Simulated scan of single mutants.
Amino acid sequence: MANLARGNLFILSAPSGAGKSSLIKALLEKHDNVKVSVSHTTRQPRPGEENAVHYHFVTVDAFKALIEAGDFFEWAKVFDNFYGTSKQAIETQLASGIDVFLDIDWQGARQVRELVPDVKTIFILPPSREELERRLNNRGQDSQEIIAARMAEAKSESSHYCEFDYVLVNDDFDTTLNELESIVLAARLQTKNQTVKHQQLIDELLR
């Protein structure tokens, strides 16, 4: 009988508009044992976003109190807003054999890598600057000033791609999703996970 292997921790980072959220959503719809960590943030909810589903929306004072209490696995300030990831929520899911994705930027990725050296990190690039700008405009949620700021930030964020284990170019969505699934599968098949999962079999074979 197979044992329960500990879940794998993944980081998925990308500039705004690269398609990261859509990829995570599609991955969760296809796999029951994959979850995305629900981060805390001080920014205002966007249309259609729900508290405790997309983010835990909190005040700046509440967020700073959580920092002081050491409750965050990682946290960062992006576009004048704070984002953070709960330590306890992640550990509970990993211990249950669930693979957890952190939807965080390169700054958060650096913090997590220091605490969890074997975290798998993935960066999503858009196919071109023109396509990225088109996607941001098609959202219809931001002003031209904000879009210009996001384009500038995208250049800055993308310069950190080389810090990640895997880089995917989101040109064709289905292809990119398949590549993302391949990374998850490869992590599950690592020797350390297979040893736990199939310990009885291995013991019998080596008896």
Rank of each mutant, 00 (worst) to 15 (best):
A76Q: 15
A76L: 03
D80M: 10
V78Y: 15
E91G: 00
Y83G: 06
E91F: 09
K77A: 06
V78P: 00
G84H: 07
A95R: 11
F72D: 03
F79H: 13
Y83N: 08
D71N: 15
F73Q: 04
D71S: 15
G84V: 08
N81V: 04
T85I: 08
E91W: 11
D80W: 07
S86A: 11
T92H: 07
Y83A: 06
F82L: 14
Q93K: 08
I90T: 10
V100N: 02
W75F: 15
F72E: 03
V100W: 01
E74T: 09
D80K: 13
Y83D: 05
F73D: 01
K77W: 07
T92R: 08
I98E: 00
T92F: 01
E74F: 10
I98Y: 01
G84K: 04
A95K: 13
A89E: 11
G97A: 05
L94D: 03
F101S: 01
E74G: 09
L94S: 04
F73S: 03
A89P: 01
Q88Y: 13
W75T: 09
D99M: 01
F79L: 10
Q93Y: 07
A89Y: 03
G97M: 05
Q88R: 10
W75I: 02
A76Y: 06
T85F: 10
Y83L: 10
F79T: 04
D71Y: 14
N81A: 15
D71C: 14
I98D: 00
A95N: 15
E91Q: 14
G84Q: 04
V100R: 01
L94H: 05
Q93L: 13
T92V: 08
D99W: 03
F73P: 02
S96Q: 14
F82G: 09
A89R: 08
I98V: 15
W75P: 05
T92I: 05
I98M: 02
A76D: 12
W75N: 12
Y83I: 05
D80I: 08
D99L: 01
K87M: 09
K77Y: 09
Q88F: 12
G97K: 05
S96R: 11
K87P: 05
Q88T: 14
K77I: 11
Y83E: 07
V78T: 14
A76G: 11
